[in-house]
């Protein structure tokens, strides 16, 4: 009885020892040499593996950044400047600060603004829907509303608003990784500078049809009238294919374009006060009158 017990213990312990040794030697034999900095870099990264940097996940970012001669091709949009400073410190490189960005949905074709012409049935995917046809409304540029962007977001920053049928970006959660911009088949989502205290001006429309066609399809559509371009004193707005676009690097947030836009497709967000349209319009009129007076005088 006793001897059996001892024998069992001895055999099991021996077996364990032999296998442990085997494992040890195998681990030694197949050990992969890795730059010790890779682990350190990876520790600073957010670890979301979102691919926003253009590499296949955080590990790939770390490996390639250690091998790269500088950090010009490496930027982690999720971690932003603080993380990049840490990475640069580890690798002994320098990085320039970049302005924080945020995803912006450029469609305001809410359920009430865009009359429906069709009903979609099938798999709930914008990609599949976009392959099939232009969309449920007469606007072929607008949001399809199946939420491919929501599914693409790894940070839970996007959600569909059931009221409007459009995606909404949670600015706090958005890391500007850019996954949603690639997921949208209509190319509606853009990464734009977050702006001082979050204040920014956006043309919330991508409709390139001529004015009347666009207006008929959607009450909130940009009709390409060009009033904003004429008003802007910072040369920040361009009109191309019947569509206005605000260059956020030039915009000075004066909100004049918002005041003059007849379609209401230019929207300023996060401003502390609501826009006093009449006051801004009066300001523009006064400036124009002064300019005309100067012109008259020079004649």
């Amino acid at each position: 009885m006793n001897s059996t017990l001892i024998l069992t213990i001895v055999i099991l312990a021996g077996l364990g020892l032999i296998l442990a040794l085997l494992l040890y030697f195998v681990a030694q034999k197949f050990k992969v040499e890795e730059d010790p900095r890779v682990g350190k870099v990876e520790e600073c990264l957010p670890g979301a593996n979102c691919g926003g940097c253009g590499f296949a996940g955080c590990h790939d970012f770390a490996v390639t950044s250690c091998a790269a001669p500088d950090l010009s091709r490496h930027y982690c949009p999720v971690g932003g400047d603080p993380v990049m400073q840490q990475v640069a410190a580890i690798l002994g490189y320098k990085v320039e600060a970049k302005a924080p960005q945020v995803a912006v949905v450029r469609c305001n074709g809410t359920c009430t603004a865009r009359p429906r012409t069709n009903t979609y049935q099938g798999v709930q995917s914008c990609k599949a829907k976009a392959w099939l046809y232009a969309g449920d409304t007469a606007c072929q540029f607008g949001c399809l509303g199946c939420g491919d962007c929501v599914a693409a977001c790894k940070f839970g920053a996007l959600s569909m608003d059931p009221q409007t049928g459009l995606p909404v970006v949670d600015q706090e959660k958005c890391t500007a990784c850019g996954a949603c911009t690639g997921a949208c088949p209509k190319n509606l989502i853009e990464l734009r500078a977050k702006g001082p205290r979050g204040m920014r001006m956006v043309v919330v429309c991508r409709n390139q049809d001529k004015g009347p066609v666009a207006k008929k399809a959607c009450a909130n559509a940009c009709i390409g009238c060009g009033l904003c371009v004429k008003t802007c004193t910072h040369d920040a707005i361009v009109l191309e294919n019947n569509l206005a676009y605000i260059d956020f690097t030039k915009c000075k947030l004066c909100r004049e374009c918002e005041a003059v836009c007849p379609a209401g497709s230019i929207i300023g967000v996060n401003f502390p006060k609501p826009l006093d349209k009449e006051a801004v319009k009066a300001r523009i009129a006064a400036r124009k009158a002064a300019a005309a007076a100067v012109k008259e005088e020079s004649k």
Partner: peptide
């Protein structure tokens, strides 16, 4: 002009 899928 829009075709049967609504594309111009």
């Amino acid at each position: 002009r829009a075709d049967l899928a609504g594309r111009m």
